[in-house]
Design a protein around this nucleic acid. Sequence first.
DNA 1: CGTCTAGGTTGACAGACATCTATCTAGAGC
DNA 2: GCTCTAGATAGATGTCTGTCAACCTAGACG
Lengths: 116, 116
Amino acid sequence: MSKQLPLVATESQCCSPLTREPLSEDQSAELARVFKALGDPVRLRLLSLIASHAGGEACVCDLTDAFDLTGPTISHHLKVLREAGIIDGERRGTWIYYRVLPTTLQMLSSVLMTTA
Amino acid sequence: MSKQLPLVATESQCCSPLTREPLSEDQSAELARVFKALGDPVRLRLLSLIASHAGGEACVCDLTDAFDLTGPTISHHLKVLREAGIIDGERRGTWIYYRVLPTTLQMLSSVLMTTA
DNA sequence: CGTCTAGGTTGACAGACATCTATCTAGAGC
DNA sequence: GCTCTAGATAGATGTCTGTCAACCTAGACG
């Protein structure tokens, strides 16, 4: 459903810790896209609601009540997360269920890893 | 040097994996601030240049040549990273040396951790 | 003190972005 | 087919942000 290929498509082209060596312009552009998607409080809350929901997924109908925002705004935010490769959606009848794509989060997590 | 207290100030108020339970509005606002700071390619590259530099720190003079941007723009980006609690700076004579604050990156990394 | 380099701050500006209203699309039920 | 609900899309709008030119501050040196 996501138009853009997520970074996780191939492990080989991504991503050792950024503390190891300078990121290339391409790498930083791709990573920044994902971090930017997470750089909004509403989207972060949406993500955490989805991820922690029973069964590891949630339909939009489970999400909207938590926010004092209109449907189109929630849709827009979900779209940003989807296009960043962070979540994916699946239609079931009239409902759309979203789940987190764990590999993207894991990739981000490992990029941020420092020598402890 | 950072005006805002970074999230890492107390371990007790932050931050279990966001897949575990929904983030509060406060938590998401604070986290989004840090992710947003990382959500720019220039800032990501600056961060990786600093982190991977010999001795784990770099002066601004080591950084500026890697970008086709003016000094004020680099300063602005460094300020964003600093205020997000990601880097810290120290003046040594006419030079300012920046280093990464590893606890912030570690905190972000663990927030993004999923059950593998 | 004056002069220099390093690097930060201020303000303007074009483009990006979060939000809403209006509308459209997808699916279900009759 | 029509009607309904769920949820996405399009466009307008106010706000935010990356960038630069102009300027300021910090420190070193003579």
